[in-house]
């Protein structure tokens, strides 16, 4: 479904992503784990078109994403929940969700149905729909950012550090929701520092180290790998 081939991204002279190749198949949850600064966010930003690659290919359902503008990439079905949520703090919860459906060409009625689905998945958002997004707690903002992305009816969801800054209980809740979203037919590419959580819900995973893919494979097998255990699972 999503194929990244030999991707190279630079920040000025800094070679941030080195020949990275990733593949995500339809229906999977694939995670990209690695330490801070390994290039995980850069990879996602490049897929979404916010950063430009110097070389390499990104293909999604037969479309070349390299030269596609960010808003068109979203329209193709690639939605991202960015690192740090980045909800629109000065807009209400409802307005944030409404903007999530910005590219949807459908009746207001059907978009409202989509919104109801999001509220069903995140009941706390419904309680706070009139509140400004900036006044929500970290967990609620994460839910809103996910809800906003779901409003665009994505085929694949790119999640960047959904666990960041959340309590262990909330992290569990968020990961349960990611599993549910995936079961409802949305493919997931998950970027996480919390490797244990990420691997536990993933089908496959890639380990990114200083801009390069250091290891890849079945998530369950990676969890048993001694090197991974030592470096990322705190065992």
């Amino acid at each position: 479904m999503l194929k990244v081939k030999n991707l190279n991204v630079y920040y000025g002279n800094i070679h941030a992503i080195k020949d990275v190749s990733i593949e995500v198949n339809e229906g999977e949850i694939v995670s990209l784990i690695g330490a801070n600064g390994a290039g995980k966010t850069t990879t996602l930003q490049t897929i979404s078109g916010l950063l430009k690659a110097r070389s390499g290919e990104i293909e999604f359902l037969g479309h070349d994403l390299i030269k596609t503008e960010p808003h068109k990439i979203l329209q193709l079905g690639v939605a991202q929940v960015p690192e740090g949520r980045r909800v629109f703090a000065e807009l209400s919860v409802k307005e944030n969700l409404q903007l999530g459906a910005y590219t949807i060409k459908d009746t207001a009625e059907n978009i409202k149905e989509d919104r109801k689905m999001v509220y069903k998945r995140f009941p706390r958002l419904q309680e706070r729909k009139k509140q400004l997004a900036g006044t929500l707690s970290g967990g609620e903002q994460q839910m809103l950012a996910m809800g906003r992305a779901l409003m665009s009816r994505p085929k694949i969801l790119l999640l960047d550090e959904p666990s960041m800054g959340l309590s262990p209980l909330l992290v569990k809740e968020i990961f349960e929701i990611i599993k549910e979203v995936n079961k409802s037919g949305v493919t997931v590419l998950l970027v996480e520092q919390n490797a244990k959580m990420a691997l536990s819900i993933s089908d496959r995973a890639y380990v990114l180290e200083t801009g390069k893919i250091a290891m890849e494979g079945n998530a369950k097998e990676l969890m048993q790998d001694e090197a991974i255990k030592k470096a990322y699972l705190g065992a």
């Binding site: 503008e69 960015p82 980045r86 629109f88 999530g100």
Partner: peptide, 24 residues
């Protein structure tokens, strides 16, 4: 209006606005 809220979104966070599909 939709265009108005897109303007508010771009003004707050251009990157996030692009991620919801707004043509900046």
């Amino acid at each position: 209006t939709k265009a108005g809220s897109a303007m508010r979104a771009v003004s707050e966070d251009m990157g996030a606005a692009q991620l919801v599909g707004i043509n900046v």
